[in-house]
Design a protein around this nucleic acid. Sequence first.
DNA 1: GGATACTCATTTGTATACAAATGAACTTGT
DNA 2: ACAAGTTCATTTGTATACAAATGAGTATCC
Lengths: 147, 147
Amino acid sequence: MEADDITLEGVAEYRVDQQIGFFLRQANQRHVAIFTGRMGDRLTTTQWAALSKLKEIQPTSQNQLGRETAMDVATIKGVVDRLVARNLVRTAPDPTDGRRLVLSLTSQGEETIDRNLVTARAVSEETLSPLTSGERMMLVELLRKIC
Amino acid sequence: MEADDITLEGVAEYRVDQQIGFFLRQANQRHVAIFTGRMGDRLTTTQWAALSKLKEIQPTSQNQLGRETAMDVATIKGVVDRLVARNLVRTAPDPTDGRRLVLSLTSQGEETIDRNLVTARAVSEETLSPLTSGERMMLVELLRKIC
DNA sequence: GGATACTCATTTGTATACAAATGAACTTGT
DNA sequence: ACAAGTTCATTTGTATACAAATGAGTATCC
């Protein structure tokens, strides 16, 4: 009659659903669900990231855009291919560097961003809605540290 | 000469890489990378979640395991199929309920968990290593609130 | 006891995510 | 000038992740 429900002979029990990885995965899942539910134009979170980052730094190469949006070379290629197929992004060979594929937004891509910007902000808002203003800043700060 | 670099005529700029969704995605990516780098036996984070949750609640149905590990029915099926193929999990029809597939760990599955438990704890530790003890508790608490 | 509603597992299709390998193009050092 | 190293884009293969649809089995309720 000495052990409680947390420890057993000094060995802490392991519960997957109490590990940081589980919380990170679930929180991300909830965020993606909010995004998917609100955002129009069949845009995914990664497509949105690629589009809005491209608006910020265009023209740029495919790999560079991948780096800026934390996407693997294979991942960014798939994302860009789909955006090109939907005429939101345009590719052109780099006249200076034969390896590079220069990306830029089409006017349709620009419009898509403009049309969804308010919603994108609302998605961030809803994701953080269970938190106070102070908690939100704290969470972002802590996540930034473990990235 | 009145605007600074944060606001423009009262409209805050939008930067994807400063949104909560981007941080959640990146933090999760880093955690998965730590897990993949350390864990042996070619186990993924989701496979580990399924295995260790199964140890906790076995025997249970496939959909139930999915619910407990926050996996969609199609996702948990794929994960379980791969664990069965590797002889870490066993399936059997439920004699009581013709719809259910009852899952349990094989002895190899049990051994795999035991063998990797220390590493699993080390993965959580390393993920949180940039944070102080107080920050870790705070982060978990904030993530729990937005799940 | 039988229609209705629900649950379970499966399947299909699309979209990340990443490891690993490849060939072409560029850069560097000497 | 040229070999060695690096970067870029692509391809292949595996593994989540989820929407949507389906058929089989079970529960509910009147």
